[in-house]
Structure formats: C-alpha cells, structure tokens
Amino acid sequence: AITFRFEGQEKAKKFYEKLMRQNLEATIHIHGDEVHVTVH
C-alpha cells in the first residue's frame, strides 16, 4: 500500500475520485487539515 498526504480535503477528494475511475482500491483518512489517501 502507498499513502499520499494532502493538505486540505479538496485535493484529496479529487485524487480519490481519480483512483475510483481507474478501479483502484483506496481508503481515505482525515486527520484535521491533513488527509491521507492509501492506495492498496
């Protein structure tokens, strides 16, 4: 698994949606202002 870190939720959401379109499995974790997107 690879984890990407984002400042702010907007960028993270766009990235997450892009992964979903590519049929990749990903989970999102929100830590205050920092958002972690883990790709499995």
Results as ranks from 00 to 15, higher is better:
Lys11His: 10
His31Met: 12
Met20Asp: 02
His40Ala: 09
Asn23Glu: 05
His40Ile: 13
His36Tyr: 15
Lys11Ile: 11
Ala1Leu: 13
Leu19Cys: 14
His40Asp: 04
Glu34Leu: 10
Arg21Glu: 11
Val39Phe: 12
Glu7Ser: 12
Phe6Glu: 04
Asn23Gly: 15
Thr27Asp: 09
Glu17Ala: 06
Val39Tyr: 07
Lys11Trp: 08
Asn23Thr: 03
Lys11Leu: 13
Lys13Ile: 14
Asp33Val: 10
Leu24Pro: 05
Glu17Thr: 03
Asp33Pro: 05
Gly32Ser: 04
Thr27Arg: 06
Phe15Asp: 01
Lys13Pro: 01
Glu17Lys: 04
Phe4Ile: 15
Lys18His: 13
Glu34His: 14
Met20Gly: 03
Met20Val: 11
Glu17His: 04
Ala26Gly: 03
Leu19Gly: 00
Thr3Pro: 02
Arg21Lys: 13
Asp33Phe: 11
Tyr16Asn: 00
Phe4Gly: 09
Gln9Trp: 15
Met20Pro: 01
Val35Lys: 00
Glu34Tyr: 13
Glu7Val: 12
Lys13Ala: 09
Thr27Ser: 10
Thr27Ala: 05
Thr38Cys: 04
His40Leu: 13
Ala1Tyr: 15
His40Thr: 10
Arg5Phe: 15
Glu10Asp: 10
Arg21Cys: 05
Phe6Pro: 04
Met20Arg: 11
Phe15Met: 03
Ile28His: 00
Val39Lys: 03
Met20Asn: 03
Ala12Arg: 01
Val39Met: 07
Gly8Ala: 11
His31Gln: 10
Leu19Asn: 00
Gln22Phe: 12
Glu25Tyr: 13
Ala1Pro: 10
Met20Gln: 07
Gln22Thr: 06
Asp33Leu: 11
Ile28Leu: 07
Thr27Cys: 05
Glu17Pro: 00
Glu7Asp: 13
Lys11Arg: 09
Thr38His: 14
Ile28Ser: 01
Lys13Ser: 07
Val39Gly: 02
Thr27Tyr: 12
Glu34Ile: 13
Ile30Ala: 08
Ile2Cys: 15
Ile2Asn: 03
Glu10His: 06
Gln9Asp: 08
Glu17Trp: 05
Val39Asp: 01
Ala12Gln: 01
Phe4Pro: 06
Ala12Pro: 01
Lys13Gly: 05
His31Thr: 08
Ala1Met: 12
Ile28Asp: 00
Gly32Arg: 06
Thr27Gly: 03
Glu7Pro: 07
Gln22Tyr: 12
Ile28Glu: 00
Ala26Leu: 08
Ala26Trp: 07
Glu7Gly: 06
Lys18Trp: 15
Leu24Thr: 05
Val37Ala: 00
Gln22Pro: 01
Val35Leu: 03
Gly8Val: 11
Tyr16Trp: 10
Met20His: 03
Met20Ser: 04
Tyr16Glu: 01
His29Arg: 08
Ile2His: 08
Lys14Glu: 14
Leu24Asp: 01
Thr3Leu: 11
Ala12Asp: 01
Ile30Asn: 05
Gly32Asn: 06
His36Asp: 02
Gly32Tyr: 05
Phe15Glu: 01
Phe6Ala: 02
Leu24His: 05
Gly8His: 13
Ala26Tyr: 08
Phe4Arg: 10
Lys18Ile: 12
Val35Met: 03
Glu7Trp: 12
Phe4Thr: 11
Glu10Asn: 04
Arg21Asp: 07
His31Pro: 00
Arg5Asn: 05
Gln22Gly: 06
His31Phe: 13
Ile28Gln: 01
His40Gly: 09
Thr27Gln: 06
Ile2Gly: 03
Thr27Trp: 09
Val37Trp: 01
Arg21Ser: 12
Glu25Phe: 13
Phe4His: 09
Lys13Asp: 05
Tyr16Arg: 02
Glu25Arg: 12
Thr3Ser: 05
Ala12Lys: 00
Gln9Gly: 06
Ala1Arg: 12
Gln9Arg: 07
Ile28Phe: 05
Met20Leu: 14
Val37Thr: 00
Arg5Leu: 12
Thr3Met: 08
Tyr16Val: 10
His36Lys: 04
Leu19Ile: 08
Glu34Gly: 05
His40Met: 11
Thr27Glu: 10
Glu7Cys: 15
Val35Ala: 03
Glu17Leu: 07
Lys13Tyr: 14
Ile30Val: 09
Ile2Gln: 05
Ala12Asn: 01
Val39Asn: 02
Ile30Tyr: 11
Thr38Phe: 07
His31Val: 14
Leu19His: 01
Gln22Met: 15
Gln9Leu: 15
Gly8Leu: 11
Gly32Val: 05
Val37Met: 02
His31Ala: 08
Gln22Glu: 08
Leu24Val: 13
Gly8Met: 09
His31Gly: 02
Thr38Gln: 06
Met20Lys: 11
Ile28Gly: 00
His36Cys: 12
Phe6Trp: 02
Glu10Ile: 06
Ala26Cys: 05
Lys13His: 10
Lys14Gln: 12
Lys13Leu: 15
Thr3Val: 14
Gly8Arg: 05
Glu17Val: 04
Val37Leu: 03
Glu25Ala: 13
Gln22Asp: 06
His36Glu: 03
Glu10Tyr: 05
Glu34Asn: 04
Glu10Arg: 04
Phe6Asn: 02
Phe15Cys: 07
Phe4Leu: 07
Phe4Asp: 09
Glu25His: 15
Thr38Lys: 08
Thr38Met: 09
Phe4Tyr: 14
Val39Leu: 12
Arg21Trp: 05
His29Pro: 00
Arg5Met: 11
Thr38Ile: 14
Asp33Ile: 09
Glu7Tyr: 13
Ile2Pro: 09
Ile2Met: 08
Ala12Glu: 01
Gly8Glu: 15
Leu24Gly: 02
Ala26Pro: 04
Tyr16Gln: 03
Glu10Leu: 06
Tyr16Ser: 02
Thr27Lys: 06
Lys14Cys: 13
Glu17Gly: 03
Thr38Gly: 02
Glu7Arg: 11
Arg21Leu: 12
